[in-house]
Write a protein that binds this DNA or RNA. Sequence first.
DNA 1: AGCCATGCACCG
DNA 2: CGGTGCATGGCT
Length: 488
Amino acid sequence: MSQPMEIAGQSFLPGQATIAAPSPQPQIPQACLAPVDPSAAVFASDIDAQRQAAPAVAAALAATQLNHQQLQQHVQPQQQQLTSSASQPVPAPSGAPTTTAALPITHELLGGPLAALQLGLGLGLGPGPGRTFEQGAAVAVRGGGQSAPYLHKALVPAPMDTLDPEAAAVALTARMTATGASVIFEKALTASDVSGGGRVVVPKSVAEQYFPRLDQPSGVTISATDLDGRSYTFKWRFWVNNSSRMYLLEGAGELHRNYGLEVGDVMVFAQKPDGSLVVAGRVAVKSDMLKKTPAKRPAAASAASGGSSGGGGGGGGQTSRSRDSRGARGPALRIQQQPPMAVPSAAAAAEGAAAVLPPPPPPPVAAAAGAAAGTTATGTAAAADSNPPSRGRKRKTFFPPTPNAADPRFRAHGDDGASMAILDMEAPSDGIFRAVVTQHLVPVPSGVTLARNNRWTATLDVAGETYQAFFDTRDDAVEALTAAGASP
DNA sequence: AGCCATGCACCG
DNA sequence: CGGTGCATGGCT
C-alpha cells in the first residue's frame, strides 16, 4: 500500500497528511463568514494542527483504504469550500468559554451530497443569535479486514436560508454529538408544551430512563446548556396520573424563545458523558411528522369535570411512587458496570435540593437478549443495537447510520412518543474518532479504556487535540488506536 | 390498559 | 388573575 491514493481528486502518498487540496480561493460569500462561530475557529486551528503535526493522522492516511468513488462523490462537491475554509486563517479563540469540538462528519453520516454540503451549519432558528456556518472534520479509523483509517473532512459554509430542515436536523444532532453529547430524545412540541409556559411533557419511558429519578412530585431542579453556551434551569417533576406518572420539564419557555420554537418544532435533549444535559431546538422536519401529528383535535366536549374532586385534592400526598420505575422494560440490562463518572442516584432525591445533574446515561447496550423490546420506546433506545443485526460474527460498524425515517433506530415511537423520536445515535460504537476539544482539559493521553455503556473507548491524542472513538470490544479499540499510530 | 395532551378547577 | 396540579378523555 504505498501507492498514491486519491481522495477527492487529490493524490496522497502514504505518510502524507493533507487535508484539503490547495485550490482557488473559496467562494464563500463574505457575508457568510461574518459571524464566525468560535467553535469554528477552534476547529480551523485543529485542522492546521493536524495538517502539520499529525503523524498519527498521516500514518492513518497511509494505511487508508477507502472507497474512492464514494468519497469523491461526497466530498468533491465541497472541495472548494472545504479547502478554502480549512486554510483560512482563523484566529484562535482566546477565552472561548464553552466546550467545542469539530464536527464529526463523515459522508455516511450525512444524508447525501447535499446534506453533506449543508451539514455543519450552525443551527439558528428564529431570532436566536444563530451562527451562519461551522466547520467540521473528523479523523476516522476505518476497519474491515484490516483497520484502515482515513482522513476525512467536512466543512460547510452555507447560508442559513438555504439549509433545508432535514439537513439542519442532522446538523444539529451532529453538533451535539460533536460536543460529546449524546442525543437522548427529541420532543415535538405540542400546543400545550408551547403555551403551557414552558411546561413540557416528557414521555414516561424516556423520563424514567434518562432523567433523574424522582421520589417526590415536587421534583428537582436540573440545569442544562445549549450549544451556544446558554444555560437553563428547569424543574424536573411529575404528576400523579391515574396510578402512573406524567413527567414534566418546566421552565423551557426561555429555550423555546431562544430557538423560536413553535408547535411542531422539536426540542432536542442530549447528555454529555459527565451527565450534564444539553438542550436545543430546531424546526420540524418531515421525519418528525411521519408519526402522528402533534396537533390533536380537542374534542369540543369540555370536560364535564364532574368532580370538582376537591380541587387539589390529595395534592401530592400520593407518593404512590413505587420504585419499580424500571419494571416496564425488559430486564434491566446488566449494567452493574460502574463507569468512572459521577455517582448516580445518591441523595439527589432530595427535593428542592436543587439537584443538578441527571444521572449518568443508562447503558443502551445492545439488547442481545432481544427481550422483544417489550415496551416499544423503552426498548428502542436500549434495545436497538447500535449496529444492524449482528450475526455471530461481531460486526464492526465504522460509519454511523444515516438518520432516515425508514431506519427503525431513527423512527419515532408509536405508543411511547407520539411525535417523539428517539435517536439511537448516542456515543455510537462506530469506530470513528471524534474530536473532543475542550478548553479546560488538558489533552488526554492516547489509550484504550472501558467507558460507560460498556463501550471501549479509544482515545487518540493528535498534536494536543483529543479524539475519541467507541468500539464494542477492546480489541477493536486497540486495533484502531494502533492503526492510527498510537500505542494502547 | 397505558399513555399523554389538554381543559379546567383551585390556589395564592 | 396567572400559574399550577389534577382529572378527563382521545388515542394507541
